[in-house]
């Protein structure tokens, strides 16, 4: 992330170290104005980010040490400071840990699954730029553009055990019906399936774009050296799209850690809590039961987890490079 490669766009073909040296030289005279101008450009966005991104974290952190509930919102003077109590309760709450474990499970299975599927789709789409393939691209991108509310309506009806499409298809194929959303294990799979379905689109477009940036001459050269298609793919193509892959892995990782939408609209965390992810657990405690203090403590734990996992992933990648 710190060291982005130069894109293949011809205009920007200048080596990076050169451009930096020049800017430093020129900057020695102009530095004050330029720094001021930099802030000028970034400021509107930074203000919004500070107000709507960072300040809520501070508020959540502060609230996590209180017993704030809906009564406290109405009468702030009744809010009590409870120290680390919310965190201690959290540590002893089996529901929190089962939500944590479920989320971790989705990360472990989901990140590689989405990455591999998106890569496969991107590789396939990259073979050809014809009209048919452009149509396929649109089809793959469909799920990513659909509103959550629409997704919930469509999939609920498809999964439905009585009149849903899936069980009818299974029936046609002579297979037994599945209780898609009402059996704990199959609900976990069903909810994950929808999430994967939704994530493939954007990620494969990103990877497709990266694949199109792989220079043909390198592939030709490798082919002349006698490398087969598999070796060419592993040793020429993959290293070239390393950055895009890392990007996909990281955003997918964060996405799964924040996993919320699909169980929220499809199962509401059920049946019997089987699909309650960490975010959904926090949402339910915070906004169904109005336990804002407790939910804030959980949010901070989630935030720290995400930050830690992201940092570890970045470290690992840097070590690999």
């Amino acid at each position: 992330m710190q060291n982005p490669p130069v894109p293949v766009g011809a205009k920007a073909g200048q080596p990076r170290h050169l451009s930096r040296r020049r800017s430093v030289r020129a900057g020695s005279r102009r530095q004050p104005t330029s720094r001021w101008a930099g802030w000028g450009f970034a400021l509107p966005a930074l203000v919004l980010v500070a107000v709507f991104g960072l300040m809520p974290i501070l508020v959540a952190a502060a609230v996590s040490f209180t017993d704030l509930d809906i009564g406290g919102l109405a009468h702030p003077e009744t809010i009590r400071l409870v120290g680390a109590e919310n965190y201690l309760t959290l540590a002893a709450d089996p529901e929190f840990w089962s939500a944590f474990a479920l989320t971790a499970g989705y990360v472990v299975v989901g990140v590689p699954l989405i990455t591999v599927l998106a890569l496969a789709v991107a590789t396939g789409l990259n073979r050809n730029g014809g009209r048919f393939y452009r149509l396929l691209r649109t089809l793959y991108f469909l799920p990513a553009v659909t509103a959550l509310v629409a997704i919930s309506v469509i999939w609920k009806y498809m999964f439905n055990g009585q009149f849903g499409l899936f069980n009818w298809l299974l029936d046609l194929a002579g297979l037994p019906a599945v209780n898609w959303l009402s059996d704990p294990t199959s609900a976990q799979i069903a909810v994950g399936m929808v999430a994967v379905w939704r994530a493939i689109g954007l990620n494969s477009i990103i990877l497709l774009a990266a694949l199109q940036g792989v220079p043909d001459d390198q592939l030709e050269a490798a082919a002349l050296d006698g490398a087969g298609p598999v070796r060419r793919y592993l040793h020429v193509v993959l290293p070239q799209i390393r950055f895009a892959l890392g990007f996909v892995v990281m955003t997918t990782l964060i996405g799964w850690l924040q996993f919320f939408d699909e169980p929220f609209v499809l199962t509401d965390g059920g049946p019997v809590g089987a699909t309650t992810s960490l975010s959904l657990f926090l949402f339910k405690r915070g906004f169904r039961l109005n336990e804002f203090g407790y939910a804030s403590a959980g949010s901070i734990v989630l935030l720290v987890t995400i930050a830690a996992v992201t940092l570890i992933q970045l470290r690992l990648r840097r070590a690999n490079d």
Binding site: K156, N160, Q162, N179, S182
Partner: peptide, 8 residues
């Protein structure tokens, strides 16, 4: 009783 939770 049917055990499906999404029984309509």
């Amino acid at each position: 009783v049917p055990t499906a939770s999404d029984f309509d």
